[in-house]
Design a protein around this nucleic acid. Sequence first.
DNA 1: ACGAGTATAGACAGATCGGTCTGTTTAGGT
DNA 2: ACCTAAACAGACCGATCTGTCTATACTCGT
Lengths: 186, 186
Amino acid sequence: MSRRQDLIDTALKLFYTHGIHAVGINQILEEAGVAKQTLYNHFESKDSLVVAAVERRDDLFFEWLKGRVDSKAPGEEALLEMFDAVDDWVNGRVPSLSEFHGCFFINACGEYSDPSHPVHQRCADHKTRVFKLILAQVEKIKGAGAQAEELANALFMLKEGVIVKAHVEGDSQAAVKARKIARSML
Amino acid sequence: MSRRQDLIDTALKLFYTHGIHAVGINQILEEAGVAKQTLYNHFESKDSLVVAAVERRDDLFFEWLKGRVDSKAPGEEALLEMFDAVDDWVNGRVPSLSEFHGCFFINACGEYSDPSHPVHQRCADHKTRVFKLILAQVEKIKGAGAQAEELANALFMLKEGVIVKAHVEGDSQAAVKARKIARSML
DNA sequence: ACGAGTATAGACAGATCGGTCTGTTTAGGT
DNA sequence: ACCTAAACAGACCGATCTGTCTATACTCGT
C-alpha cells in the first residue's frame, strides 16, 4: 500500500511540475525508487496512474481549501479567507500543495481536452466541488436562490482568474487584488 | 512563405486540440502535407515551431478580440461586448479560432511552467496585452487611476474564469453569467 | 522455518520521438 | 532552355516511450 502511494505522490509532483505527457514512466520510477513491475502490479497503465494522481490532487487540494475556509466564521469571513488561502498558495507558502505551477486541473484539461476522458471528468468534478463549497458560504449570507448562485459564480470565476493571472503572468499580487474586489461584492 | 505558414497553422491547430507534448513532428508534417526537411529549413527545432505557433495564436486571438471590442462604443458597451465575444468563442461560433479547447496560453503554460521559457514568456505577454486592452476601455469610463486598474483587474480575472469554467466544467453559460456580473460592476 | 505474496533489477520488445541525410523532382526567373 | 532554390519522399540515427518478461530477493503470517 505504501508503494502505491509513493508512486501516486511522485507522479503527481512530476505531472504538476512538468505536465503529464512530458513525464515518462521511467522518470517516475526512478524518482520514487520503485521497480517497473511494481507499478504495473498496482496500475494497469500510465493512464490509470494519471487518473489516480488527479484524484489524489483533488483530495489534497479540496481538503486544504475546505480547512482554510472552515477556519473562519461562515459567510463573508470564510469567503475572504479563501482568497487569503489562494494568496498563500500562489506565493509558495503552502508546502503540502507543492511549489505553485498553476491549477493542476486546468493544466490537465489542456492535455486532455476531450470532456469524456476520465481525466477531464475528474477535473470537472473537482471544480464543481469547489464551486459548491463557495456557494454554501454565499448562502450563509444571501440565503439560497438565484442571487446567491450568481455571487458564487462571480467569486468562483474570480478565484480561477487569480490562479491564471498568478501563473501565466507571474502576478504575485493577483489574490490580494481579487480579495479587495470580492470584499466590495459582499 | 506559404509552406511555413501551413506548418504554423497546422501545428497550432494540433497543439491547441491535443496539447503540445502530445503532438509529434511527424503528425504535423502528415497533416500539413509537407516534407520533413522543409520543416527544418524553416525552423531549427520543434521548440521554435512551438514558439511560432504561440505567436500566431497571439496575433489571431488578440486581433479578433480587439476587433470585437472596437466594434462597439468605447467604455461599457465595448467591455460587455468582450463577454459576448467570449460567449461566441466558447460556444463554437468563431471558426477562425478553431473549436474551443480552453485558452491556448493557459494550456501552454501548464506544459511550460518555467516562467523564463520562451513559450511561457509569450503567453505572459499575450495576457498582459489583453489586460491592457481591457484597461484602456475601463479608463474611458473611470479615467486613469487606481480605481480603473482595480476594475480592469476584476474584469480580466472574470474573463479568465469564464474560459476556465467553460472548458473544465463544460459550462456553456459561463460567459452569460459573467456578463451579468460585469454589468453590475460597471 | 517455510511458503505465498510482493518487491527488486534489468533485459527486452515494438513503436515513436526529434532530427539528419541523400537523392530526386518541381517551380520560377532570366 | 537553363540554372537555382526549394520541396519532395523516405531511409536512417540514436534516444526514449509504454509495457512485458524473467529471475532473484525480501517480508511476513502461520
